[in-house]
Design a protein around this nucleic acid. Structure first.
Lengths: 120, 120
DNA sequence: TCAATATCTCAAGAATCGTTGAGATATTGG
DNA sequence: CCAATATCTCAACGATTCTTGAGATATTGA
């Protein structure tokens, strides 16, 4: 993750429809959902609007797509989300891990912690 | 954290100067930095531009300010950053913690893990 | 090939955002 | 009060972004 990719990702996440799409795909897991299914889950979604937003998210690296028959299936790019978190919080500790523990707690309330070392 | 606050936060983070300010303040820690010091760290920073961006970040809840004499000191609002991460990754596991472990690993490479339960 | 389905591409107008420069407000010390 | 310092507010212009609607492309089955 570098600054320009982070800026693209945050810009992509700062729009209501796109943020909803990403959160929907995060909960949908690796199997993902078709463009049409995603559109049905959004209010007032024209096909061109969905295409615009899904393309924007893919360009930003936040979602990935694959074709399955007539449908295009989108799924969340969790490694980009992880990179974004790491980029934002990089060097947050400075030897005082308690400073950024709120962010850790937020994630560990969702996920089993993995082993890691504090660099501060 | 709710959707509107998350949208405001991501919009605030999607601009180069503001993202740099937040990252600078994250590394600066709880003591924070004055508006003038932050401006000096940015390229081509007019005072009105700094004021605009710092106000934008404060409005979005990403930074906090306090007056000290003639200076206004800004610091990162780590609890908002944590809330943002939690909002984005909520329900990412669905019983399969390995799905969102990349995000956990990103943070635990910075911070000592805290105790938490997987809800998946 | 033809029709149906699913999705994407493109152009134009409306809305939003960032920069600039002038001036206003708050604090400090004489 | 006055001057110096630090920061904020406001209006206007240019740039970017979102939505819409028409039409194009890709896949499937008869």
């Amino acid at each position: 993750m570098n600054e320009n990719r982070a800026l693209d990702a945050f810009a992509a996440l700062s729009q209501e429809t796109r943020l909803r799409i990403v959160r929907l795909l995060v909960t949908a897991g690796p199997e993902g959902l078709s463009a049409g299914t995603i559109g049905e889950a959004m209010d007032s979604a024209s096909s061109s609007r969905m295409s615009f937003h899904l393309g924007h998210l893919e360009q930003a690296g936040l979602v990935e797509s694959r074709r399955e028959g007539r449908s295009i299936i989108y799924s969340a790019a969790l490694s980009t989300l992880a990179g974004l978190i790491e980029f934002l919080m990089r060097d947050c500790c400075q030897g005082h891990p308690e400073v950024c523990n709120p962010a850790m707690a937020a994630l560990s309330s969702c996920c089993e912690p993995t082993k890691g070392t504090a660099h501060g």
